[in-house]
C-alpha cells in the first residue's frame, strides 16, 4: 500500500497539521511516512499545501506531481490540484465557498461540508478533523485507534483533554461525507 496525498487550502484552515496528523497516525500503524509543506511567503494569508505519503515501503521522493488523493479546501486549490489527481484517484473537496465544481470524469469525487458541521459542533477548530474523518471513511488506510495515538503525539499535553472532541469530529466527518461521482 502506498497512498500519496496532497492537502491544500487557505493558511489557517489547518492544512499542514492535517498532513502531520495523518503521518503521525501512520507511524503508529508502523507505516513509512513523509510530509512536505509548501513554505515561505506564499503562506502569508494565501494558500498552503502539504504532501503526505503513507506507505508500507521505503518512500523515495517526498515531492510529487500527481497524487492518489487530493483534498482541496478552497477554490484556488481546486483549480491547482484537480488535474494532479491520478486517473482512478480520489478528489475530496470542501463545498463552502467553492464556486466551480470539479470537471474530471475519470476520478472519484467526494464532497464534505466540514465548515457547517464544525459550526454545529460549536467549534470551528475541529474543521480539519472532520475532513480527515471524511477521508478515512473513503480510504480507511489507518485505524481509528492509531489516529488517536497520532493525535496524542501531535498535540501538546495541555490540549490532550480535547482529544475526545477531535475523535467526535472525525466520526462526524465519516458520517457526512458524500460521494458525488463514482467510477464504474
Amino acid at each position: 500500500m502506498t497512498e500519496e496525498i496532497i492537502i491544500a487550502g487557505f493558511g489557517g484552515q489547518g492544512v499542514l497539521s492535517m498532513g502531520q496528523i495523518l503521518c503521525y497516525s501512520g507511524v503508529m500503524q508502523e507505516k513509512e511516512v513523509s510530509w512536505m509543506p509548501s513554505y515561505g511567503p506564499e503562506m502569508r494569508g494565501g494558500t498552503a499545501n502539504c504532501t503526505a505519503i503513507i506507505s508500507d515501503d521505503q518512500i523515495s521522493s517526498p515531492v510529487l506531481n500527481t497524487f492518489d488523493t487530493a483534498i482541496v479546501l478552497n477554490q484556488p486549490s481546486m483549480d491547482k490540484f484537480e488535474d494532479a489527481v491520478k486517473p482512478g484517484g480520489l478528489l475530496i473537496y470542501e463545498s463552502n465557498g467553492m464556486i466551480r465544481k470539479p470537471k474530471r470524469k475519470d476520478i472519484n469525487i467526494c464532497v464534505i461540508n466540514a465548515y457547517d458541521e464544525s459550526v454545529k459542533m460549536n467549534n470551528t477548530k475541529v474543521f480539519n478533523m472532520i475532513v480527515i474523518g471524511g477521508f478515512l471513511k473513503i480510504k480507511p488506510i489507518i485505524d481509528m485507534e492509531n489516529v488517536i495515538k497520532g493525535l496524542q503525539k501531535v498535540l501538546p499535553e495541555r490540549y490532550h483533554h480535547l482529544i475526545p472532541l477531535n475523535e467526535d469530529a472525525i466520526r462526524k466527518g465519516m458520517e457526512i461525507i458524500t460521494v458525488e461521482h463514482q467510477l464504474n
Binding site: E32, V33, S34, W35, M36, P37, Y39, I59, P62
Partner: peptide, 10 residues
C-alpha cells in the same frame, strides 16, 4: 536543501 530541511519523516 529546502526539501530535506522542511520535510518530516521518521
Amino acid at each position: 536543501d529546502g526539501i530535506i530541511g522542511q520535510m518530516m519523516e521518521k
